[in-house]
Design a protein around this nucleic acid. Sequence first.
RNA 1: GGACCCGUAGCCUAGCGGAUAGGGCACUUCCCUCCUAAGGAAGGGGUCGUGGGUUCGAUUCCCACCGGGUCCGCCA
Length: 573
Amino acid sequence: MPGFREEIAKVISLSLKERLKQDEVLALLESPPSAEMGDIAFPCFKLAALFKKSPAEIAKHLSQDVKLPASVEKAEAAGPYLNFFLQKESIAKQAISRILKEGASYGKLKANGKRVMVEYSAPNTNKPLHLGHLRNDSIGMAVCKLLEAAGCKVIKANLVNDRGIHICKSMLAYRLFGKGKTPARAGLKPDHFVGKYYVLYNKKAAEKPELEMQAYEMLTLWEAKDRKTIALWKKMNEWVLKGFKETYKNFGSSFDHWFFESEFYDRAKPLVELGKQKGFFSVNDEGALLARLENYGLPDKTVSRADGTSIYITNDLALTRHKFEHFMLDESIWVVGSEQNLYFKQLFKIFELLGFAWAGKCRHLSYGMVFLPSGKLKSREGIVVDADNIIAEVNCLASKEVLKRHKKIKKTELSNRARAVGLAAIKFYMLKTAAQKDLHFRPRESISFEGETGPYIQYTYARAKSILRKAKKTSLQNLLFTQLQSDEAKNLIKLLAQFPEAVQKSADSLSPHILCQLLIETAEAFNTFYHRHPVMQAESVELKKERLALVQATAQVLKNGLALLNIEAIERM
RNA sequence: GGACCCGUAGCCUAGCGGAUAGGGCACUUCCCUCCUAAGGAAGGGGUCGUGGGUUCGAUUCCCACCGGGUCCGCCA
């Protein structure tokens, strides 16, 4: 069902003899700076070169030539812009009935057959998930949902970094100082229990440098599949994974596939051979194997150690090939922090040089670092903001807020609402700014429930739902929208109509913040409308119904939007 | 030394070649006999890091510089 924006794009496209396609026109539409100038603006700058006329001339020509749809009252050229004045009844009818009809699928595009894998979270099994993972998971989940809405078949993947020297460090500390304790006996969440030994290792290693040697010996034993070492590794990894799964469940992260580095790190031999054959993998003076990338403006990358043991990239070489071949992917996306920008450039260049057809289908979704007031997160020193603690802390804050408003609320209801509100605060905070920007996390200020926040949008939704509950089962069929005349209603409708385009844009550019921005604007517009125009006390029955329909449509859009950000819309707050 | 990212009001942030630079926090002043005040209305606060250049037009593109960050490991 086309909306009025599509209609406008269509008539412009037709008038331009389709030199610009409807979708291209649609993407160019913007809002004039003030309402007096119109509701939708079409800038003509891009057409100047195409038609060899000034933008103003083109706008003028279009204003006379364009065949206006019913949703448009008039179109005026204003310098280089063509401004459209919308017909209130028509757009209300069109947009609201479309949203009510499509319901939960409003904003979703039809399937495009593209298979995309999104790898995110990627924890290390030597320590619990921290603040950085919360940003990673928030972005990862939102991008998965956005791509799904855009019509892709999405496979959510988690790569568990479960081998390597860092894992051996917590293992060594446990063997030396653990005295056979278990998480249960220590009364700790199992991933926190293991993390304690990683911190302990680093503390002890500062005094006893020989520990480093011992950790490396342990890695060699592990690679040689030494029974006792493997047994310890398995035990500790099980503990950690059990803890992770609990955190993921709490936070709402989910995965279709779990990959383990331990299963892929030694499967890169054929690729290493291929690289040698192609002549750009070669051994250096110390005996390590390097991918020679200096001709491509990149530093060389070590592919395997002199003693033949594997390093991190070995795993990615084998795993990526497996991903594309086994899952028949059209695209593979890695959600990984910006500190690995160079690493991914090198990795992708190696795929290209190895000659894989899918080399160009790899995307690194890079996001900025999360800093604390004291500096960067440093898990080695135990300076972390632990994910579980943050979730619990925000939950507690939310709980207090709910309790302030509802003194006699039932316990289960209180905890459900607090959980939803707390998570919304964290996730929206992580998503509302462009991913590449660094984030400075100040626990007290960062996660607020007022202003541009997840809870603000949830609150707006809850207010809308509260009205709808009061209205009971008023029929909203066959409304004419002749009464819904206010500017506030019109503004709101215009924003609701932009939702599908915002979803598309967010998905295409892997930028959840674009959708966040629209949801904020929509919530603001609704709250303005809410204050100016009482719904249940409307002057006439017809007006009341029309307002109710608008409230219903707004609630639907907010709910759909939040869902794409992996945030729950709650009925009452 | 080299590469990349970020500098927009006290703080956070959108816009990234075009119409008066949008928001939020904090601050000032109003609004709960009225559908949830986690809200709304109004107000003050900006040389869009600095200096050049390209352009009819630059917060947006290019160059230099200055701040801040990251990476350049036989760590992951």
